[in-house]
Simulated scan of single mutants.
Amino acid sequence: MEIDVQMRRRASRRWIAIGMIAFGAMFLVLGLVLAGATASFLSDAKRTRGSVVALEWREDNHKEDHTPVAYPVVEFTSADGMPRRFQSSTGSNPPSYEKGERVDVLYRAGSPADARINGFASLWLLPLIFGGTGLAMSVGGTAVATARRWRS
């Protein structure tokens, strides 16, 4: 009876380790893909100055208290002389920017609608979250698998 329980524990630890490594690898790959997309964006992005013209407040459905989050709306003039406007994909509470604040804007010359605020969060937050989570899960799964083999 005791041997059966030990075998089940070993099997469950093995599957936990395999699952952690697999999910960690997927998250790590996704983080690397996002980092590559950001690097590609930066390699051909035009730089200009813009102004925060508004803060778009939305409820954050990922939090239990549904705290509203401010997303800056930025206006800038592209190289073709056309005024452009975009809403940042990164929001925060308290707001990271104030209405009227001047910001650096990066955009693709061939597609000025693809614009971002030149800031750490707007450029690198998602790659860092996915890559860091993936790395931590993979290392944790490897540690579980290594500890299991070491005990055997």
Results as ranks from 00 to 15, higher is better:
residue 78 S to N: 15
residue 64 E to F: 12
residue 64 E to H: 13
residue 19 G to N: 01
residue 76 F to I: 06
residue 34 L to D: 07
residue 41 F to D: 05
residue 70 A to I: 05
residue 92 S to Q: 00
residue 49 R to M: 07
residue 43 S to D: 04
residue 64 E to C: 05
residue 57 W to A: 06
residue 95 P to E: 06
residue 92 S to E: 09
residue 97 Y to H: 07
residue 96 S to M: 04
residue 24 G to S: 02
residue 31 G to N: 08
residue 27 F to S: 12
residue 45 A to C: 08
residue 77 T to G: 08
residue 21 I to P: 05
residue 40 S to R: 15
residue 55 L to E: 03
residue 94 P to F: 04
residue 58 R to K: 13
residue 70 A to M: 03
residue 62 H to I: 13
residue 55 L to N: 04
residue 50 G to S: 09
residue 66 H to R: 15
residue 63 K to Y: 01
residue 87 Q to C: 12
residue 93 N to W: 09
residue 72 P to A: 03
residue 60 D to L: 03
residue 78 S to V: 09
residue 98 E to D: 15
residue 72 P to R: 04
residue 94 P to K: 01
residue 55 L to M: 04
residue 30 L to H: 09
residue 46 K to E: 15
residue 85 R to Q: 14
residue 98 E to R: 14
residue 89 S to F: 09
residue 29 V to H: 05
residue 82 M to H: 15
residue 63 K to E: 10
residue 57 W to R: 03
residue 56 E to R: 12
residue 76 F to A: 00
residue 46 K to L: 14
residue 88 S to P: 00
residue 53 V to R: 12
residue 63 K to T: 13
residue 28 L to T: 15
residue 73 V to M: 08
residue 43 S to A: 15
residue 86 F to P: 03
residue 29 V to P: 06
residue 76 F to Y: 14
residue 90 T to R: 06
residue 81 G to N: 08
residue 68 P to N: 05
residue 100 G to D: 02
residue 35 A to Q: 01
residue 87 Q to G: 10
residue 90 T to P: 06
residue 81 G to A: 10
residue 94 P to Y: 04
residue 37 A to M: 13
residue 50 G to E: 01
residue 32 L to S: 03
residue 90 T to Q: 13
residue 52 V to I: 08
residue 48 T to S: 12
residue 46 K to M: 15
residue 42 L to Y: 11
residue 69 V to M: 01
residue 93 N to M: 02
residue 29 V to A: 15
residue 92 S to P: 07
residue 30 L to R: 09
residue 97 Y to D: 02
residue 29 V to T: 12
residue 76 F to P: 00
residue 34 L to N: 02
residue 32 L to N: 12
residue 63 K to S: 14
residue 78 S to H: 11
residue 62 H to L: 14
residue 69 V to N: 06
residue 30 L to E: 10
residue 24 G to N: 07
residue 69 V to Q: 00
residue 98 E to K: 14
residue 25 A to D: 09
residue 34 L to K: 12
residue 52 V to A: 00
residue 95 P to H: 01
residue 34 L to R: 11
residue 49 R to E: 12
residue 45 A to F: 09
residue 48 T to D: 10
residue 99 K to T: 13
residue 92 S to W: 08
residue 35 A to L: 04
residue 72 P to M: 06
residue 42 L to R: 14
residue 75 E to P: 00
residue 36 G to M: 06
residue 35 A to W: 05
residue 39 A to H: 10
residue 74 V to Y: 09
residue 26 M to F: 15
residue 26 M to T: 12
residue 29 V to W: 09
residue 31 G to P: 04
residue 77 T to Y: 01
residue 83 P to D: 10
residue 90 T to N: 01
residue 50 G to H: 02
residue 48 T to R: 04
residue 47 R to K: 10
residue 36 G to L: 09
residue 88 S to L: 01
residue 25 A to F: 12
residue 41 F to V: 08
residue 37 A to Y: 05
residue 75 E to C: 06
residue 67 T to D: 02
residue 94 P to H: 03
residue 39 A to L: 07
residue 79 A to M: 11
residue 33 V to C: 08
residue 58 R to I: 09
residue 71 Y to H: 04
residue 53 V to Y: 07
residue 91 G to V: 01
residue 27 F to A: 14
residue 68 P to K: 03
residue 57 W to K: 02
residue 46 K to P: 08
residue 61 N to V: 13
residue 53 V to I: 10
residue 58 R to T: 07
residue 93 N to G: 03
residue 31 G to A: 02
residue 45 A to E: 11
residue 32 L to I: 11
residue 81 G to E: 07
residue 54 A to T: 06
residue 52 V to G: 04
